[in-house]
């Protein structure tokens, strides 16, 4: 039990094929490629087709993660999905995905921790495995944010994209050991990043739709300040729990919300640019999907190798935040 560990043994991601560039957005709202690029670092993002829902993106990402792990459907013992854009309020997206993957009737649930969702998922998976509740769990972060973006709000519509990432977590390695972590939330800041209508507080109505209150509302500067500080502190506390210092970090994968936030976080952690992974230019902010997409890219591109310490850090609606150290073995 003391020696029991949780390993990432396979990763996968999927993004929709439709690319929406900054030039496309220039034709939709009063914006410019230069404005978007200098303020966010985003050049293009992926948009789900009308037929694609969050579970469809999850399905492909999960298949790739299972294939990388060498898992058969019968090997999976639970599926958890972090998302703010589930197919439905119920049933859970995880069960839809499990059914379509042909899994046995394993436990499935969704959880909502905004952009910190995937790290929250890894922390849950680690706890399940170390407590001997199970041996193999599929953790997915997936979003179709394009469905809840206000496409008339030039301040926010340029920032978000769709995608999914998955990780197969196993009690047996080798792989990325789920190490020191930190997670937290501050509900007092909730109103600064919110989808106001569509839940029990403000059910969907004609008035809500007319006011676009079913779309993302964000107070950018307040979120920016809190994001930088919370990601820095989450990363530092996760490192401390693992007994590592910031000099021991080989790679930072932070939530891809905004290049300026990533740069500020890296600076606050004293990390040089070559230790900071960035793919925001390709996908924009995909909320809970951003870290597992990035993780899959660094694994498949061979950027991550045994012996490396990878630090994850995220921040999102809630407000929530989280950090985790992955020690690759």
């Amino acid at each position: 039990m003391d020696n029991r560990q949780a390993f990432i043994v396979g990763t996968g991601h999927y993004v929709p094929s439709r690319v929406l560039t900054n030039a496309d957005l220039e034709r939709m709202v009063d914006t410019s490629d230069e404005w978007i690029t200098t303020r966010s670092g985003i050049k293009e993002r992926r948009i789900a087709s009308p037929e694609e829902a969050t579970s469809d993106l999850c399905l492909e990402a999960a298949r790739r993660a299972m294939e990388a792990a060498g898992w058969e459907p019968g090997d999976v013992e639970a599926v958890i999905v972090g998302t703010v854009t589930p197919d439905h309020a119920f049933p859970c997206t995880a069960a839809i995905v499990a059914h379509r993957l042909g899994l046995p009737t394993v436990p499935c649930y969704d959880f909502e921790a905004g952009c910190s969702g995937f790290i929250y998922g890894l922390i849950q998976a680690r706890a399940m495995i170390l407590s001997e509740t199970l041996d193999r769990v599929l953790v997915i972060g997936a979003e179709t944010l394009s469905r809840i973006v206000n496409w008339e709000d030039r301040a926010t519509c340029v920032l978000f994209g769709d995608g999914a990432g998955a990780a197969a977590i196993d009690s047996r390695g080798p792989g990325g050991v789920l190490g020191g972590w930190h997670w937290g939330a501050d509900g007092s800041m909730g109103p600064s990043l919110v989808q106001p209508a569509g839940g029990s507080r403000e059910p969907i109505s004609h008035e809500a739709l007319d006011g676009k209150r079913n779309t993302i509302y964000m107070e950018g500067s307040e979120i920016f300040k809190n994001a930088v500080r919370a990601m820095r502190d989450s990363a530092l506390m996760a490192l401390e729990k693992e007994g590592l210092r910031r000099e021991d970090v080989h790679l930072l994968i932070s939530h891809q919300a905004n290049l300026r936030i990533i740069d500020s976080t890296a600076k606050a952690l004293n990390l040089p640019p070559e230790k900071v992974f960035v793919n925001i230019h390709k996908y924009g902010n995909t909320s809970s999907a951003s870290i597992p997409i990035a993780l899959d890219e660094v694994v498949r591109d061979g950027i991550v190798k045994p012996g490396m310490n990878v630090v994850l850090a995220a921040f999102g609606a809630g407000l929530t935040w989280g950090g985790m150290v992955l020690k690759w073995k």
Partner: peptide
């Protein structure tokens, strides 16, 4: 400065 520079300055 742009709007985000101003936020970072305040920080």
């Amino acid at each position: 400065a742009d709007s985000l520079d101003q936020v970072e300055l305040m920080m």
